[in-house]
Computed example of a mutant assay.
Amino acid sequence: MLVLSRKVGDTIWIGEDIEIVISEVKGEQVKVAINAPRSIDIIRGELRQDVSASNTEAVITNLDLFKNKF
């Protein structure tokens, strides 16, 4: 993991296509802007965890239904 200190207006590039801009720092909150091709999915970490947990729960439920049928 790379950890960087940045100021408002500073940028970080990932590869040739993804630019991250520090747009605002207010107390403990940092706002970032991400410029990336539309083909790149961008999702907040907490949403990804929620989706993963929901998917796991759905699989377990489906397995339980399948076991009860046979």
Rank of each mutant, 00 (worst) to 15 (best):
S39T: 13
K69G: 06
G27S: 10
T61Q: 06
L47I: 08
I60P: 02
G9I: 06
M1V: 10
L65C: 05
A58G: 15
R38Y: 04
A33C: 06
M1R: 04
D17M: 04
L2S: 11
S54P: 01
G15V: 13
V30E: 02
E16D: 05
L47A: 05
L4P: 00
K26E: 04
A58F: 14
K26Y: 02
W13V: 12
N62C: 08
L65T: 04
N35W: 02
D10W: 11
E16S: 01
I20E: 00
K69L: 11
R44E: 04
G9V: 06
R6D: 03
V59G: 08
I20T: 02
D10A: 09
D64G: 04
V30A: 09
T11Y: 07
K69A: 11
V59S: 14
F66D: 10
I18L: 03
W13T: 12
I20G: 01
G27M: 09
L4R: 08
G45Q: 03
A53K: 10
K7G: 10
G27K: 10
Q49R: 10
P37F: 07
R48L: 11
L2E: 13
G27I: 01
I20Y: 01
T61G: 03
V3M: 03
I40V: 12
S39I: 10
D50H: 03
T56L: 15
V59Q: 14
G9C: 08
Q29K: 07
S5C: 05
L4Q: 08
A53L: 14
N62R: 12
L2M: 09
T56A: 15
K69R: 13
I43S: 04
E16H: 01
F70M: 12
L63A: 05
I40S: 00
V21F: 00
L2T: 14
N68T: 05
L65D: 09
D41K: 02
V32P: 00
